[in-house]
Structure formats: structure tokens, C-alpha cells
Design a protein around this nucleic acid. Structure first.
Lengths: 140, 140
DNA sequence: TGTTATTTGCAAGAGACTTGCAATAATGTG
DNA sequence: CACATTATTGCAAGTCTCTTGCAAATAACA
């Protein structure tokens, strides 16, 4: 996404475009895997971007609030991952239990299910998580 | 489940039936919500059962290894919950965002989806999580 | 009842994430 | 462009969930 557009989004909520926010956005933009905070931290260090892990956490939270980034909680990983939204459709993931690779599943089969659940439970369904684990072609 | 059956399962792996294991099992048996370790701890304290939080963690892990208990990681809760398996079918949950109440969804709509994912990704699919949040009838 | 190995409680540690605060840097104004 | 203002950063320390080490307690079984 255009930096100026993001800058406007930040300004609209009284925030500023900073060196570190640019760096995190750029990293998420060129990475095709959802990254954890510590992975973002490590990768930026390798890229010689000075940033603190605390700032990574604060940055992904801001980007999440702005709706630029989605937070994923994958199956028993014990940490969150973040990926750029960038106009992408809501989707789910499968993670290889061996190598940890995460692949997007370009579908969400839950629309009918959601309606069924609302009928049966009388809940108003908000959000859902659906994540798979398994063995990828290389690790089988 | 019968205590003697569980005792046999424990013995078969060189383990023992203890006061604390009985207490955790009994609590899970009479509770109709998946409980977190700290909830188990607090509830047992109120019931005047002397137990350490560490022992709760160790106990639920043993019961999980024996296949007596299922570990749930609900949507962005930051803690695991445990519920008795007791011959119950695989199922999912919905949690109220306001009051935290958890309701069982007595269905799993993912068999066809799993096959579709295996075809498309060439993964061998192992496990999955599917959890919903929303607003329960009382909190709407 | 006694022997032995498992289990427990306590203290301490690990890992993910948050908060307080002073120093730093982005903004937009003159 | 320089300045004043206010958000942001880095550091230290704290929180929370969960794990590990170890000596003392207890279950199992002869």
C-alpha cells in the first residue's frame, strides 16, 4: 500500500509515520509468511534496522488497530503472528508440524456454518478462528 | 468415568492415582465449562482441596497424555482450557465476548473441507482448531 | 509396616507480551 | 529553516502463563 495513504490513516488517529513503522511495514510487505514479533525483531536486526522488541509489539498493535495488519493465533504456537491485510480476503492457514511453514488457504467455508450456529445457539457470531496443522509435501 | 478404569490407565504408564488427580478429575467432571489451570486452582481452593498451581498444570498434562482430557486454545485468550473427553465426540466452541461463557457446538463441519485442503495444498492434514466468539443471548 | 519410585510443593526460571518514564524524533507553525 | 509541541522510542521492570529442579511427602505393593 502507498506510504502516503498509511500516513493519512496514522494522522487521522493522531499518530505519526516513523522510521520503525516504515521498517515493519516494509518487512511485512516483502515477506510471504505471517511473522511473529520476535521474527520481525530478528529480521530487522539482520537488516541493520535499529529497533527494540517492545517497539515491534507496539507497532503491530497500532497497525492492527488501523486495520492494516491481521493478528493470527495459530494452533498451540504460544505466540501471535502478523500479516498485512492489503485488501486481501479473509482466509485461513495450515502450518507444517515439522518445518513450521505456513500456507494460506484461500477459502473460508464458514458462512453457512455461522448462520447455523446463530440459529442453534442464539449467539450473535462475531469472529472465528480456523487453523489447520499437518505435514507439508516436503516433510511427509 | 470409573475411578478404577482411570487408575488402570495411570498404572499402565507407571503412574499413580493421587488425591490431587482425583480432585481435578472430579472438578472437571462436575463442571460444564472448559476450565483454565488457574480456574481449576481457584475452584479447588474454594473447595478446600490443598493443591499447588504447579500441580494443576502437571495434572492436566498427564490427563491429556492419557487421552482423558482435551486442551483447548480459544481465540486470543492467552491461556489454555481443559475439558473431560469422556467419550464425547470431537466438537468446537463459541465464547461470549462479554461474559466469557463457553458453549459447545455439537458439530464439526470440516470433513469435506479437510479433503479439499489436502487436494489443493498437498499437505497431509492432521489437526485443526475452530473456535467462534460472539455475543450470547443474555449479553446482546 | 517398610521399601521404593512417583508425586507434590516451593522456589526459581522461561517466554510472550505490557507498562512507566525519560530521552528522542516527527509534525506543522511561524 | 528553526522551534515548540506531542507522539514515539528504548530501556528497565513488571505481568501472566506455564515449566523445571529438587527435597520432602505419599502411593503402591511386597
Amino acid at each position: 500500500m502507498l506510504e502516503s495513504t498509511i500516513r493519512k490513516g496514522l494522522r487521522a488517529t493522531g499518530r505519526r509515520m516513523t522510521r520503525t513503522r516504515k521498517a515493519v511495514l516494509a518487512l511485512l510487505e516483502c515477506t510471504h509468511q505471517p511473522l511473529s514479533a520476535s521474527e520481525i525483531f530478528t529480521q530487522l536486526q539482520e537488516d541493520h534496522v535499529a529497533i527494540d522488541l517492545v517497539t515491534v509489539y507496539r507497532t503491530v498493535n497500532v497497525l492492527k488497530e488501523l486495520g492494516l495488519v491481521v493478528q493470527l493465533d495459530l494452533f498451540q504456537e504460544g505466540q501471535s503472528r502478523y500479516e498485512l491485510k492489503e485488501g486481501r480476503k479473509h482466509h485461513h492457514h495450515i502450518r507444517c508440524q515439522i518445518c513450521g511453514r505456513i500456507v494460506d488457504l484461500l477459502l473460508c467455508p464458514l458462512k453457512k456454518i455461522t448462520r447455523l450456529i446463530e440459529e442453534r445457539t442464539q449467539f450473535v457470531v462475531g469472529d472465528h478462528t480456523l487453523e489447520f496443522t499437518g505435514f507439508c509435501p516436503q516433510c511427509q
